[in-house]
Design a protein around this nucleic acid. Structure first.
Lengths: 122, 122
DNA sequence: ATCATTGTTCGTTTCTTTACGAACATTAAA
DNA sequence: TTTAATGTTCGTAAAGAAACGAACAATGAT
């Protein structure tokens, strides 16, 4: 997963830089499905997830890691048993950043300018 | 852009299948930035966008196409001038599907079950 | 009719993602 | 102390994404 926050912030503003990695982590059906599954349980084994997806357990482990990398889920280990769950903080950030994006998109609704000949900053 | 709606719906439910392609299209900072830019204008040239991104115009054209493929933007041509804008329908679907996802995740808040030893369906 | 502008498509390269099974590590049970 | 169960990591292969410049098409201007 590429972390765009290391990119030049003069090129992209903060909304794209914050949001893109989170959306990337969620842009695969299996990972969305994992999020939905984890939302139903207080901690969940990797095994129990991989049993319900048509994917090898190593693949599921990598999907879980991708969600963990961006902070959307967390994991503790108790014995041989893993315990994945949605990270409240990461999940909250997802909603905040997404809503910032939505807010920014809708900010100009009804008062857009014609762009074709103008030179406004992006 | 992979369209997951052709996948087996017995494997993934509709929220992941609907939402994943849209999030994939938005999972790149340049494409998020393009959406923000288009939100400010009633139609915008590809050229004016590519002038404001550190990317070749062919690359921008491909980013625009990726957004178009999933229905988030549309384009008309008037002479040599292109006219990209946010598609109301696609944008609305993005919000609907994303909120469905959020709603599904939060449906079980406060009443989650422990998963480790259970065999619940995903 | 030629030239400039705009935009897309194509070929290529590089890098990333997805997926798998094998191998490995760790803990728990027999 | 083997053996089983759980998970991660590794090597590998295949597919896809990202980026570029060159080439191309189409319209508009000179």
């Amino acid at each position: 997963m590429v972390i765009y926050s290391k990119m030049n912030t003069e090129t992209y503003n903060t909304i794209p830089l914050n949001l893109a990695p989170l959306l990337g982590a969620l842009s695969h059906p299996a990972r969305l499905q994992i999020m939905l599954h984890l939302s139903k349980f207080n901690g969940c084994q990797a095994n129990s997830i991989s049993n319900k997806l048509p994917l090898a357990k190593s693949t599921v482990s990598e999907h879980l890691n991708k969600l963990k990398e961006v902070g959307l889920i967390s994991c503790t280990n108790e014995g041989t048993c893993s315990n994945y769950r949605i990270s409240e903080e990461g999940y909250k950030l997802l909603k905040i950043y997404f809503n910032e994006f939505i807010g920014a998109v809708e900010k100009w609704q009804g008062k857009q300018k014609v762009c074709c000949t103008e030179d406004d900053n992006i």
